[in-house]
Design a binder for these strands. Structure first.
Lengths: 303, 303
DNA sequence: TTAATAATTCCGTTTTTGACAATAATAAAG
DNA sequence: CTTTATTATTGTCAAAAACGGAATTATTAA
């Protein structure tokens, strides 16, 4: 298998018309230059250089060989230089995965701001709610909104908590009684936001009381906006992050259910593949994202 | 300096999604694959592959690196394959040098026939009469018409002898007496064909007599056709190879001087640069040339 | 003919490589 | 949830390859 070194030597010898000068240029011993060219000639089955002790010149075969390899070698070295140079935190490519719900609410602002700040970092986002393997997803960084990580193997970093509230349309309470305590909740009207398919469990707290409520299985979806639309239509009660329900609450489309009972927040978390060393662009994005959530009204950064 | 091997390993690992499979594919030890990739990552200053024991995937930096190198690597391997394959005796390029005189007489037939027989061998001919260094000329083969080689260092091969005769225009002998013996020759009318600038010395022989004659310095040229034109004009006597004087003798434009005195023949010689191994195309041409001169009426093959 | 220069060869050393075993980590099976 | 099997990694040792420097050879220039 022919490597680049013999081509580099051939180029240098041909350009400088001397083995010894070429060797010095390349920082190798003259003896090595001789051996490397000899090996290359054996590999290609042709003599490439005609040498006496005082003169060196290409055979026409050698000229052909060098003419073919030279542009490739130059491109290769150019690519290498640019790659070594491009290892900068403000240039490169970023492959993310994020839940679908963030695709319409939070991420557009983050990404557009990030792109404005770092126009030379291109971004590729795979929206999916099923929390697949960070590695299998082939991405550099995964954004998740969920409870505290259970998986111990992956590396994660909690950015902030995502407050959420139980909401429903006012019209719903024309059909069923308005609940005042978690035990009043009818599971049949509780819609679950779940990526895995099972129904949700909510932990309510009010003063010193803590109550757990299991949602029903009538409506389960991994799409928060879908559930929100159902809630607006008055089809049920669901628990959704504030950044989804924000506008609806302000306009009165939906209202908060049991406002004096709070529900444990979700975590906005970054999951890293098991990096040995964090690529600079990933660090740049993580830092930007962190700064973003700290200035966001609906996210609580209680580090 | 980054070589091709790490790129080959990166490609194999990425394609097969496994270090061990890639190592087997490349015929190296798995441990080597690990070390080689680690070295490449150090060289480029970025992590390229995210690996757990069960999964391997490219980081986006790795994807960029591979995307840039892969087409170059493939071109490189393609070029290598084609070069190794193209080392055939009927394909390639040939760089010749030959005396100018052969450029209008012998070589056109040779080359046109050769090209017909080997259409895939391209030919490049540098016509020059000064016998420069075969190496400095940067050619694969030098054709020369001259006396026996004096240089011991270069490799040469005598193809045949080139008979030559002394000729002049009939009109000349209206001005000067027609010579019958070499001693009758007036050096002032003897024109020299000489590449080096000095005048020629001719060795005449007739039966048991041997006479050496030195030409004058009035007209000396390294161009046989120029001398021939002067001879036709009746300006003097010269000694030229039969392949130049052939037609003129037949048409009566010129006539042979002292037909019963013969002059030592020149040699048609091939000079090789100091090859270690003869390139196949060069051998092909030499063989063709040799066959050509054996069928040529004006050239004596007295091996 | 001699001297100087440059490619090549020889030789001892360093570096790299492969094989093997041990370790660590993770996905799949029970 | 524990066990098992698979796979990347690390370490070690022996073998192979590459390397640098000195000696050798060959060729050009004086």
């Amino acid at each position: 298998m022919i490597e680049l070194k013999p081509i580099r030597v051939l180029r240098a010898v041909s350009d400088l018309k001397s083995f010894s000068l070429a060797a010095r240029e390349l920082g190798i011993a003259p003896a090595s230059a001789t051996r490397i060219i000899a090996q290359l000639e054996r590999d290609l089955g042709t003599q490439l250089l005609v040498r006496t002790t005082r003169q060196v010149s290409l055979t026409s075969a050698g000229a052909t060989v060098l003419a073919q390899y030279r542009p490739l070698l130059e491109r290769f070295e150019e690519v290498t230089r640019s790659l070594q140079r491009a290892n900068q935190p403000d240039k490169g490519h970023l492959r993310l995965t994020a839940p679908v719900s963030l695709g319409v609410t939070l991420l557009p602002q983050v990404i557009s701001g990030f792109r404005l700040a770092y126009p030379n970092i291109s971004v590729e986002i795979n929206f999916t709610d099923t929390l697949l393997d960070v590695i299998e997803e082939n991405c550099d960084l995964a954004v998740r909104v969920s409870g505290p990580p259970t998986d111990k193997s992956t590396i994660w970093r909690k950015l902030c908590e995502v407050p959420r509230h139980m909401i429903a349309a006012p019209s719903l309470f024309e059909r069923i009684p308005r609940p005042d305590h978690p035990r009043d909740l009818n599971p049949d009207f509780l819609m679950s936001y779940s990526a895995q398919g099972g129904s949700e469990t909510w932990d309510f707290s009010h003063a010193v009381s803590n109550v757990s409520v299991q949602a029903g299985r009538n409506i389960v979806s991994n799409n928060g906006d879908f559930l929100y639309a159902l809630a607006v239509a008055g089809d049920g009660i669901c628990v959704l992050p504030d950044f989804i329900t924000d506008k609806g609450l302000a306009s009165g489309q939906v209202e908060q259910v049991m406002p004096n009972w709070s529900i444990t927040s979700l975590w906005l978390t970054l999951y890293y593949p098991p990096y040995e060393q964090l690529p600079p662009v990933v660090g740049t994005f993580a830092k930007y994202f962190e700064a973003f959530v700290q200035n966001h009204p609906n996210l609580e950064t209680n580090t």
